[in-house]
Amino acid sequence: MQTKRSTYQNRWLPFFLLAPQLAITLVFFIWPASQAVKSSFERTDAFGFKTTFVGLENYARILADPSYLNALGRTAIFAISVTVLSMGMALLLAVCVNRVLKSAKFYTTLLVWPYAVAPVVAGVLWWFLFNPTIGLLPHLLDWFGISWNHRVSGSQAMILITIAAAWKQISYNFLFFLAGLQSVPHSLIEAAAIDGATPFKRFWTIVLPLLSPTTFFLLIININYVMFDTFGVIDATTGGGPGQATMTLVYKVYTDGVAGLNIGSSSAQSVMLMGIVIILTFIQFRYVERRVNY
């Protein structure tokens, strides 16, 4: 890793400058993470008196536990639905904003603000709209003969959190897609137009392929968002229920560890999550480097 061509020679100063960040990182990040790894190999008895080393037993147990595997599958479905929904909407809106020249800034302003809405609040807003007794949407759905009650139906609860989580993420995806679209060279579009390609054909054959780095980047970011930041959405709306229909991996770490006080299992689940984040981070960084070369 580079420094400047010429650097300062002080011996102690750099350590003082780094000290605050390193101290916080060690105390609140590295130490707790190592504790999580340690207790994932241990079991504490019911009264918290004795802790014994049990090797991989916690891992074996969660991997054999149907409720963990279900949470894994549900998290995958949740992640895919939110990502597809919010990226699809965002791409559509970004393409439209990129077409209107005069009012682009106006529409952008009206589309970006949900980024600042807390996930919990996003959850509450949609929960209110879908509220089975006074919500607007259940009344609308009633006309179509659909009876909505996300407190009873697991799949409806899943739809609720998917919509709430996707709604909040549209603004983020939109900004990145718009930036990507604006960097598509205009000459390419014009050349294709002269060759008689319709706007839709130009989009499919030129714009979309050129957007693929942005799309891939957003894919990783969105999966990360759904896995971790949607805790608030779920906690405010369904609380993991009904049954365990909206229990994602992160929510399960929380319920097992904080509410259930099953530290060993919760830690093993935390370590598995760390593994997932590490994989996502490496994919992201490898890819970012490639984009820089490209």
């Binding site: 990182t25 993470a33 904080v258």
Partner: peptide, 17 residues
């Protein structure tokens, strides 16, 4: 050490933190 914090969001280290 600083880089590693990227991989440790609050959600994966709830209880020990």
């Amino acid at each position: 050490i600083i880089f590693i914090t990227l991989m440790l969001p609050v959600e994966v280290r709830i209880i020990p933190t």
